[in-house]
Simulated scan of single mutants.
Amino acid sequence: MNPAVLVGIGGMLGALSRHFVGQRLSGDGQATLAVNVLGSFVLGTLTTGLTTDPELLTLFGTGFCGAFTTFSSFAFETVRLYERGKRREAISNATVNLVGALAAVALGGVAASTISF
């Protein structure tokens, strides 16, 4: 299938899923943290050998995860906290998002290697 179509379909599913998470989680930054960590876990599982199918990687890795996760919202929320004088919260937000996403990628990789055939 055409890679642009795969990215489009995956992106649509990722954006809708992100909207769903945003509707379910309230509070400053909770939805952003959730989608970034969950999306990083999914990407970690995909890129660590769960699949080598280039179409699945394009559909889910580039399309879904690309639309589901959101670096721009994370960066905006962090800067807004800093501008409002909430510097500790800004640093905490940045730390939790980055460490959480990196840990989720690693955990996804471990999960994928555990269930790989």
Rank of each mutant, 00 (worst) to 15 (best):
N2F: 03
N2P: 14
P3G: 08
I9P: 01
G10P: 11
G11S: 13
L13K: 03
G14D: 05
G14S: 09
G14V: 05
L16I: 13
L16A: 14
S17C: 07
H19C: 06
V21G: 09
Q23I: 09
R24K: 15
R24F: 06
L25F: 07
S26W: 01
S26A: 09
G27Q: 12
D28W: 12
D28I: 07
T32F: 00
L33A: 03
N36F: 05
L38N: 01
L38E: 04
L38F: 11
G39S: 06
S40I: 08
V42C: 03
G44T: 02
T45M: 15
L46S: 05
L46R: 03
T48K: 05
G49W: 08
G49C: 06
L50A: 12
E55L: 08
L57P: 00
L57G: 13
T62D: 05
G63S: 05
G63K: 06
A67T: 04
A67W: 01
T69F: 00
S72E: 01
F74N: 04
A75D: 04
F76T: 10
T78K: 04
V79K: 08
L81V: 01
E83M: 09
E83T: 13
R84K: 14
G85T: 02
K86R: 14
E89Y: 04
E89Q: 15
A90G: 12
I91M: 14
I91P: 02
I91D: 05
N93E: 02
T95V: 13
N97D: 11
L98R: 08
G100A: 14
A101C: 13
A101W: 03
L102W: 13
A104K: 05
A104M: 08
V105T: 10
A106E: 07
A106G: 07
A106W: 13
L107T: 13
G109S: 12
V110C: 11
V110M: 14
A111I: 08
A111S: 13
A112W: 08
S113A: 12
T114A: 15
I115T: 14
I115G: 12
S116A: 15
